[in-house]
Design a binder for these strands. Structure first.
Lengths: 335, 335
DNA sequence: CATCAAAATGAAATCGTCTTCAACAACTCG
DNA sequence: CGAGTTGTTGAAGACGATTTCATTTTGATG
């Protein structure tokens, strides 16, 4: 392994000082075109790459951004994070940044000083982490809103549009009694999606029957138990929406176990377009959003912020309604 | 934001030099118990945490390890990586390391100098990356074997045991004509699993019919097309194994589309215990392995290597055979 | 041609830690 | 008591960049 080439080596090769080399590389001071050319050439020939540790030390920057994931068991397994991470990583690389996973319930001092900024996920309505990072002055952008109206640095999906199309879809299929399976109400995205659902009822002049709505964990079991809760009230929607695909799946399983067929006896709509949604039978009608792209946008936004560049905030990403097998024309029996 | 406290501040508070503080913190030189105690106390009171950039500069270490994922579209979405990452991150944190994703087809100079070592994934039989990282002297450990018998720094699942149990299972169910859906043969794990499958035939005194084995991509489509290839030969196994759950899923779908029921007309066995394997109908009989734990082991091994500590290599993790709905007693019609 | 501004480059300090080696103190032992 | 250990601490110099400010060179202007 030949010795690492430093800025001094480049300087010596060109016959200038490290200052000059640094200047051409960072574009701070004015440097004559001739000198610049020779420096650049030497950099190329010697294959010089600045030592990030040294740079980090003097600039008080680490050129590392983090994906912050609140520590709760196994959430990271969700492909949501993997996709976001992939998007972030690609963008970060372009800007000379690197991304780390911060899988924790806060920021230890040692971790805090190792990153320049964070991308937040899993935001709650009144998000404690948003407040926390704001307080400790850690720069961040959010994948979702965090209940703080002063913040504009976030990336979200156009939930509104997605739910609108989904509701219209089942409405056109003849459904008039729509139910809703809510995830934990503390999450911003749960409320946001539900809000749009209610708004659509108003727009369509449909009465919203609260008895057709219930809450559960964001899991198969949660979907099943919310479904059960609704049945326990002695009511039955002809179509049901779920906060997420995983809850929709749980609901479908619950229905099957109780002798109801999907979509013949009840239509089901999810949200997220999870991996499994197209595998399962019936495949799940859902709203697709591009988490990979959201990750890219979030990283771009964060890095722009760190580097002091402008960036259009917030970013609202388009979604796509994906009709599949779990929704169909209402059957006459149920009308 | 109060000013960052440095080693000098601690030294001043105690009335010693930075050298002494550094020594007690790094345990290099012998320091009197009394001094040590006072230094530690000051560190505590001042909430001193060493500046990693400075340390990185002088130690020529970054205290960052990477999870290397060969760049091919969307693999990162697989929860395999998310799980491994979660395990790695937890362990890394304990040792003061941080983990970054290297989602790329090599190591640019700038990235190379930002990590101390790598965890390799998706190993091939004659893995080019293994050779590459060996050549550039980048420390690494592998999640899987890489076709290099000199390497012992790897973590694998006890494939042998898993396949053994799976084969025994279907054998006991009466199946004698077993087929195999292979993923791309370049991958080490594909070959390894298949190898055990063949060995089991020998042990059980079963003839292995090569016509019942076919190759396809590691995807639903790949599983389906491999299944189709076998049928095209005019043969039909009573039970079929797949390199992965996703291929098994594709095969099941293919069978359904062609009027064959699983498991009634054919039993199917996967490998991995993917998320969806228990969701789908029929749920897939498979072999579970703990990728989270593998990630933990890999990180421990790598960090031990970097810090010059001993670590038992290689690590072979236990697996668990998970019988589900996709396998059943052979039907008399098919015998 | 003298003067002054602008352009280009360099010298030296700095970032916060670790490390080498020297210095000093205390102790042991003949 | 002096010499050699052993234990404890400090001084100074990296590590490899950036940055501030000074200096030199060049060019323009009256």
């Amino acid at each position: 392994m030949r010795k690492k080439v430093t800025i001094k080596d480049v300087a010596k090769a060109v016959g200038v000082t490290p200052t000059t080399v640094s200047n051409v590389l960072n574009g701070t001071n004015r440097i004559s075109d001739e000198t610049r050319r020779r420096v650049l050439q030497a950099v190329e020939e010697l294959q010089y790459t600045p030592n990030m540790s040294a740079r980090a030390l003097v600039k008080r920057r680490t050129y590392t951004i983090g994906l912050f994931i609140p520590a709760s068991p196994r959430v990271l397994s969700d492909s949501y994070f993997a996709e976001a991470l992939r998007g972030m990583t690609e963008v970060a690389l372009q800007y000379g940044y690197v991304v780390s996973i911060i899988y924790s319930d806060g920021l230890s001092d040692s971790v805090r000083q190792r990153i320049d900024g964070l991308v937040l996920t899993e935001l709650k309505n009144k998000d404690e982490y948003v407040q926390y990072f704001k307080r400790i002055r850690m720069p961040f952008v959010a994948l979702g809103r965090g209940g703080d109206p002063t913040l504009r640095d976030y990336v979200i999906s156009d939930t509104n549009r997605g739910i609108r199309e989904a509701v219209n879809h089942v409405y056109r299929l003849g459904h008039r009694h729509l139910g809703y399976l809510l995830g934990p109400l503390c999450y911003e995205y749960v409320c946001e999606r539900y809000r749009t659902f209610r708004r659509m009822h108003a727009e369509l002049g449909l009465p919203l029957d609260r008895r057709l709505c219930a809450t559960g964990e964001n899991s198969r079991e949660g979907g099943a138990s919310a479904m059960r809760a609704i049945f326990a009230r002695g009511v039955r929607p002809t179509a049901i929406f779920a906060s997420t695909d995983i809850m929709a799946l749980g609901a479908i399983e619950y229905l099957h176990e109780h002798g109801l067929r999907v979509p013949d006896d009840m239509s089901v709509v999810g949200f997220d377009d999870a991996d499994f949604s197209k595998y399962v039978r019936p495949s799940i009608t859902t709203v697709h959003h591009d988490i990979y792209r959201a990750g890219r946008e979030a990283a771009s936004m964060l890095i722009a912020k760190l580097d002091g560049r402008e960036y259009k905030c917030p970013v609202i990403l388009p979604v796509r309604f994906v009709p599949r097998e779990s929704t169909s024309v209402i059957s006459h029996v149920n009308q």
